[in-house]
Amino acid sequence: MALNLLKLSVGPETVEDLEGFIAQRMLLSGADVTWHQTRMVPKRRDELLDGGSIYWVIKGQICARQVLLDIVPFTDESGIGRCRLILDPVLVRTERHPKRPFQGWRYLKPDEAPADFAGASEDDGLPREMRDELSDLGLF
């Protein structure tokens, strides 16, 4: 089974904000993938790239994921080792799951990862906030 990463999304306050950030980065870079840069290189690369995803925590809840495509270590212009996590640009919404704040990223075992969101769809006519609240209550 694939191993996943868990990461706080700093800046975006909603999944829509994160989608906008991804779209803007792709537009500016001209790339067909997006990335997240981090200081630490995951040691369990092969497990992560065997179908793993990065799960995003937004405002204290895991609520979306992106498939990990590659992990590229590099040294920046200051001589500091860094890592670029290459990601599929498609953001998949997940069932919401509360998560306390933490620094950096964490490994997330497959059996601990929330399922993809299978509730109401975007075209159901409900406002996003209402859909999220109903999901939080377990009604979706």
Rank of each mutant, 00 (worst) to 15 (best):
A2V: 01
L3V: 05
L5N: 00
K7T: 06
K7Y: 00
K7L: 12
L8Y: 07
S9R: 00
S9Y: 04
V10W: 08
G11T: 01
G11C: 08
P12V: 02
T14M: 03
T14V: 00
T14A: 00
D17S: 06
D17Q: 03
D17H: 07
D17P: 00
L18E: 04
L18H: 01
E19M: 08
G20Y: 01
G20K: 07
Q24E: 13
R25N: 12
R25K: 14
M26G: 02
S29Y: 04
S29N: 02
S29F: 11
A31F: 02
D32A: 07
V33H: 12
V33W: 10
T34C: 01
T34S: 01
W35S: 15
W35D: 02
Q37F: 04
Q37C: 14
T38N: 07
T38W: 08
T38C: 13
T38H: 08
P42Q: 07
R44E: 12
R45Q: 14
D46S: 15
D46P: 02
E47N: 07
L48C: 13
L48S: 12
G52D: 09
S53D: 11
S53Y: 13
I54T: 09
Y55N: 06
V57I: 14
I58R: 01
I58E: 00
I58T: 00
K59V: 13
G60W: 01
I62N: 03
I62C: 11
A64I: 04
Q66F: 03
Q66M: 05
V67M: 05
L68W: 02
L69M: 12
V72N: 10
V72A: 12
P73H: 12
F74M: 03
T75H: 04
T75E: 14
T75S: 06
T75N: 06
E77V: 13
E77L: 07
E77T: 12
E77I: 10
S78I: 04
G79M: 13
G81F: 13
G81V: 14
R82Q: 15
R84A: 15
R84P: 06
R84C: 11
L85V: 05
I86C: 07
L87F: 09
P89M: 03
P89Q: 01
V90W: 00
V90P: 01
E95M: 09
R96I: 06
R96K: 08
R96M: 04
H97K: 15
H97Q: 15
K99W: 09
K99G: 01
K99C: 12
R100V: 07
R100G: 08
R100F: 02
F102C: 09
Q103N: 12
G104S: 09
R106H: 15
Y107N: 11
Y107E: 03
L108E: 03
L108H: 08
K109W: 10
P110S: 15
A113N: 05
P114Q: 10
P114R: 12
D116L: 11
G119H: 05
A120G: 11
S121R: 15
D123M: 06
D124C: 12
G125P: 04
L126D: 10
R128I: 05
R128D: 08
R131I: 10
R131G: 03
R131V: 06
D132V: 03
E133F: 13
E133R: 14
D136Q: 07
D136W: 08
L137T: 09
L139W: 09
L139Y: 14
F140Y: 11
F140S: 06
